[in-house]
């Protein structure tokens, strides 16, 4: 859900950015972080706890708590709350600690 009318702020309609989330083609807008784009689509579960696999979402929005870590373009543990969305990104829910990549 996006804000359309606000007493203090103006949110201009920005360019649409297409990306892939867990295999599905979806989109956000320029200026979105990966986490905000997913949230606007109603996706609240961004990650899982390492051992008990409990669902985890956005918590701190400053790149500190690791609750929103996801796999972005094959790279694990990306802090999606402070990573800007880019056209064509491939975003996946992370189920483990993350594997080393090349």
């Amino acid at each position: 859900m996006r804000i359309t009318e606000h007493p203090i702020l103006t949110f201009e309609q920005k360019a649409k950015l297409q990306f892939v989330f867990d295999g599905n083609k979806v989109y956000g807008y320029e200026g979105d972080t990966i986490a905000s784009a997913l949230h606007a689509m109603g996706v609240k579960k961004l990650s899982h706890s390492i051992h008990l696999k409990r669902p985890r979402g956005f918590y701190c929005a400053i790149g500190n708590c690791a609750s929103c870590n996801m796999i972005v373009d094959e790279k694990p543990n990306v802090r999606t709350c402070v990573t800007l969305l880019k056209e064509g990104m491939v975003v996946k829910t992370q189920l483990n600690k993350g594997e080393l990549y090349d």
Partner: peptide
């Protein structure tokens, strides 16, 4: 307390006022 939908208040402020996205209803 770790369920998605439970946020820091400041994080929600960022989501709303920077990204223009609502946390919920």
């Amino acid at each position: 307390n770790d369920l998605p939908g439970i946020y820091g208040a400041g994080a929600v402020q960022t989501l709303m006022n920077v990204n223009g996205v609502l946390p919920g209803n």
